[in-house]
């Protein structure tokens, strides 16, 4: 049984979720998430030892497309909704760390 979610975990999850929370929100969410998770623990009444997880409802497999080039949007449309741009690029504040994952 997982231990009850506390404010420290809520802060950590907020960070993982890239959500800046106010102190009031941390408090509010801690209580609400705790209530929801308490309810969710109901699942533990079920023995699922030999049950396969079901991620897809459909028994589908092997859906492919052929390796054919289709027209792209073009630079202007690609950047059309950009909050900030620099010429042909999206613009963001200077990235100083390397947290690329790929």
């Amino acid at each position: 049984m997982a231990k009850k979610i506390d404010q420290a975990q809520v802060r950590k999850v907020a960070k993982l979720s890239r959500l800046e929370l106010t102190e009031a929100e941390v408090e509010e969410f801690t209580g609400q998430l705790r209530a929801i998770l308490d309810y969710v623990e109901k699942m533990n009444e079920l023995d699922t030892t030999n049950v396969e997880p079901l991620a897809h409802c459909l028994p589908l497999s092997n859906v492919f497309r052929q390796d054919r080039v289709k027209e792209s949007l073009g630079t202007e449309k690609t950047l059309g909704n950009a909050p900030q741009r620099d010429g042909e690029f999206f613009k963001v504040p200077k990235i100083l760390d390397d947290s690329s994952g790929a």
């Binding site: 054919r68 080039v69 289709k70 792209s72 949007l73 630079t75 690609t78 950047l79 042909e88 690029f89």
Partner: peptide
């Protein structure tokens, strides 16, 4: 996962689709 051309050296953000 899309039909954009996978090519190097094109004009920035020109090989992009939704």
């Amino acid at each position: 996962f899309c039909g954009c051309a996978a090519e190097f050296g094109a004009e920035p953000n020109s090989r992009v689709c939704p």
